[in-house]
């Protein structure tokens, strides 16, 4: 069984999967990967179930030392990964072996990287999930972020590792990270608490990600969004991607670790396929919200699922080995035929 030794933990490195679904009625946040797109692609690249637990690496990467052979893939933010000082590709799986050291030279674009290992990491399931929920000190690796000296065990799957090495997500399907993002939203559930002017401001302004941006939510700053009357409501449920606007008029986008209920008006909700982009926005980046209708959003969602399911290109199978061909020259009814006969078998 392969292992990873954490030589340096990085800024914030946690195990995340698709989160704890079904426990919000008990007040338990879902947690899970901030960028579910990058998580699911990372898993597809190494042949895991799409929702397997991976490492979520935030802004500053760890130093990881491998013992044993493992197939890994890194997706999401480009933190300039190198193995033994040689750059390794993003969005493509590759093999590592005993003694290999993976480090990250620095953030180029995006905010969060995802590292999947074929077989997944060996940590207990809590309420059906491997995700680390930091505020509750539970899940993932001992309920906390990785620290120096930790040993992460990789499950040995029955996957023929090497055969999958080189699987990649084509360039055109990779998200584009930069310093500004356009994020699609569906208005509501409390858009009727805002003035027309308030909605116009929200949809026509650039909002900057502040330093108060963590796994719970991203606080944005920009032109104040005007309410009709108050900003407080009787607490109701919060969906992933909800954009709360408290009395101060600045939006807060609720992310993976968001609380399950809240008492502030929510002007709109980020659509599922764009949650990953929000997760890659770092302090200082700007966000522009554009509205979509629900029917359109569901069409976009279909396309998104299609990329998750079919986007990854597996390495082409090894060429068939053939015996030397036999050639015959045949003459039938005066016509001459050149016939090649070859025997084929599987390697």
């Amino acid at each position: 069984m392969a292992e990873i030794k954490v030589n340096k933990p990085g800024f914030l490195t946690t195990i995340q999967d698709m989160g704890r679904v079904g426990y919000q009625q008990f007040g338990m946040p879902v947690a899970g990967a901030m960028d579910p797109f990058s998580l699911q692609i990372a898993n597809a690249l190494v042949g895991n179930d799409p929702g397997e637990g991976v490492l979520e690496i935030t802004m500053m990467g760890p130093e990881l030392e491998f013992s044993g052979e493992a197939l890994i893939a890194i997706t999401g933010a480009d933190l300039s990964p190198v193995v033994n000082e040689t750059p390794v590709p993003m969005w493509q799986s590759f093999m590592v072996k005993t003694g290999d050291v993976l480090t990250f030279r620095g953030l180029k674009k995006g905010c969060r990287s995802y590292l999947a290992a074929a077989g997944g990491f060996q940590v207990p399931l809590i309420m059906g999930s491997k995700s680390t929920y930091l505020k509750g000190n539970l899940g993932g690796f001992e309920g906390r972020a990785l620290k120096a000296g930790d040993i992460l065990k990789i499950n040995s799957g029955d996957i023929k590792l090497k055969a999958l090495s080189g699987a990649y997500l084509p360039e055109k399907l990779r998200p584009i990270y930069g310093n500004s993002y356009t994020v699609r939203v569906i208005l509501g559930p409390q858009d009727d608490y805002f003035t027309q002017e308030g909605i116009k401001t929200f949809l026509n302004s650039d909002y900057k990600v502040t330093n108060e941006a963590d796994r719970m939510g991203l606080r944005l700053e920009g032109p104040k969004i005007e309410h009709k009357e108050g900003a407080d409501i009787i607490s109701d449920g919060i969906a992933l991607g909800s954009i709360q606007v408290p009395g101060h008029g600045s939006p807060i986008v609720m992310m993976a670790d968001h609380q399950t209920t809240g008492g502030y008006t929510k002007i709109a909700t980020v659509i599922t396929p764009d949650i990953g982009l929000m997760a890659q926005a770092k302090p200082g980046d700007t966000i522009r919200f554009v509205p979509v209708e629900i029917e359109e959003a569901h069409e976009i969602l279909k396309e998104y699922y299609k990329v998750l399911k079919e986007g990854v290109v597996l390495p082409s199978p090894p060429p068939k080995i053939t015996k030397p061909a036999m050639t015959y020259n045949l003459r039938i009814n005066g016509k001459e035929y050149h016939v090649v006969v070859e025997e084929m078998w599987d390697s």
């Binding site: 509501g188 559930p189 969906a239 992933l240 599922t272």
Partner: peptide
């Protein structure tokens, strides 16, 4: 019935406790 994104539907029964 209020939309809470592409996967959320908020069924609101009243505006008081």
């Amino acid at each position: 019935f209020l939309l809470a994104g592409d996967k959320g539907l908020n069924m609101e029964f009243g505006n008081e406790i």
